[in-house]
Amino acid sequence: EQRVMALYDFQARSPREVTMKKGDVLTLLSSINKDWWKVEAADHQGIVPAVYVRRLAH
């Protein structure tokens, strides 16, 4: 499974989004949309801005 790391803090503004802190490692579920990526963090799935995360090497 692909992982991403948060580059910045992000506060969810809707139930579809995921709140994350800089340095958090999340599971990447989908990167089809270039602006918003779907991730999973602590059993919560949602979207985060793609520019706020970076793919981690396997």
Rank of each mutant, 00 (worst) to 15 (best):
E1A: 05
Q2A: 13
Q2S: 02
Q2N: 14
Q2G: 11
Q2F: 14
Q2R: 08
R3T: 03
R3P: 00
R3Y: 14
R3L: 11
R3E: 06
R3M: 08
V4K: 03
V4Y: 05
V4D: 04
V4A: 00
V4S: 01
M5Q: 09
M5G: 02
M5R: 09
M5T: 10
M5H: 03
M5P: 10
A6W: 03
A6R: 03
A6F: 00
L7A: 06
L7R: 04
L7F: 06
L7H: 00
Y8A: 15
Y8F: 15
Y8I: 13
D9W: 00
D9V: 00
D9A: 11
D9N: 05
F10Y: 15
F10D: 02
F10T: 03
F10G: 00
F10S: 04
F10Q: 06
Q11G: 03
Q11N: 11
Q11P: 01
Q11K: 15
Q11F: 10
Q11H: 08
Q11S: 09
Q11A: 09
A12Y: 06
A12W: 02
A12T: 04
R13Q: 10
R13T: 11
R13A: 10
R13K: 08
R13E: 02
S14L: 01
S14A: 03
S14C: 06
S14W: 01
S14I: 10
S14E: 03
S14Y: 06
P15E: 12
P15N: 10
P15W: 03
P15G: 08
P15I: 08
P15S: 11
E17D: 03
E17K: 08
E17H: 05
V18R: 02
V18G: 06
V18T: 13
V18W: 00
V18Y: 01
V18L: 14
T19N: 11
T19Y: 06
T19K: 05
T19G: 01
M20E: 04
M20A: 02
M20K: 06
M20Y: 01
M20Q: 10
K21L: 03
K21W: 07
K21E: 04
K21F: 05
K21H: 10
K22R: 10
K22E: 02
K22A: 05
K22N: 07
K22W: 04
K22H: 09
D24T: 13
D24L: 00
D24S: 10
D24R: 04
D24A: 03
V25A: 11
V25S: 01
V25Q: 04
V25W: 01
V25N: 08
V25D: 08
V25T: 04
L26P: 04
L26W: 03
L26A: 07
L26E: 07
L26K: 09
L26T: 07
L26I: 04
T27M: 00
T27V: 08
T27L: 03
L28E: 08
L28M: 00
L28K: 05
L28Y: 03
L28S: 04
L28N: 10
L28A: 03
L28R: 00
L28I: 13
L29D: 05
L29A: 00
L29N: 07
L29S: 11
L29R: 03
L29Q: 09
L29I: 10
L29H: 08
S30I: 09
S30C: 09
S31D: 15
S31R: 10
S31Y: 10
S31E: 15
S31M: 12
S31G: 09
S31N: 10
N33E: 12
N33P: 09
K34T: 13
K34S: 11
K34L: 14
K34I: 08
K34R: 11
K34N: 09
D35N: 11
D35C: 13
D35T: 07
D35L: 04
D35G: 05
W36G: 03
W36R: 01
W37A: 01
W37K: 10
W37I: 15
W37L: 15
W37H: 13
K38F: 14
K38Q: 13
K38L: 15
K38G: 02
K38D: 07
K38E: 14
K38A: 10
K38I: 13
V39T: 02
V39M: 02
V39C: 03
V39P: 09
V39F: 05
V39E: 09
E40T: 11
E40Q: 14
E40R: 14
E40M: 11
E40I: 05
E40P: 03
E40Y: 06
A41S: 14
A41C: 13
A41L: 11
A41H: 15
A41E: 01
A41D: 05
A41M: 12
A42I: 08
A42R: 10
A42G: 15
A42Y: 11
A42W: 01
A42F: 13
D43Q: 15
D43V: 07
D43T: 11
D43W: 05
D43E: 08
H44Y: 02
H44L: 04
H44E: 10
H44R: 13
H44W: 07
H44P: 00
H44V: 11
Q45G: 03
Q45E: 13
Q45C: 12
Q45N: 10
Q45R: 12
Q45M: 05
Q45I: 13
Q45L: 04
G46V: 00
G46S: 00
G46C: 09
G46D: 09
G46K: 08
G46E: 12
I47W: 15
I47S: 05
I47V: 14
I47G: 02
I47T: 04
I47K: 04
I47N: 10
I47R: 00
V48C: 07
V48Y: 00
V48S: 10
V48T: 03
V48D: 08
V48H: 08
V48A: 04
V48R: 06
P49G: 08
P49D: 01
P49E: 01
P49K: 07
P49L: 01
P49M: 03
A50K: 05
A50Q: 07
A50D: 01
A50F: 11
A50W: 01
A50C: 07
A50P: 02
A50I: 12
A50M: 02
V51C: 14
V51H: 14
V51N: 12
V51T: 14
V51E: 10
V51F: 14
V51S: 15
V51M: 14
Y52I: 01
Y52W: 00
Y52E: 11
Y52T: 05
Y52N: 04
Y52G: 05
Y52F: 09
V53T: 01
V53W: 05
V53Q: 03
V53F: 08
R54D: 13
R54V: 07
R54A: 09
R54I: 09
L56R: 01
L56A: 01
L56K: 08
L56N: 05
L56E: 06
A57D: 15
A57G: 14
A57V: 07
A57S: 14
A57W: 04
H58R: 12
H58C: 13
H58P: 15
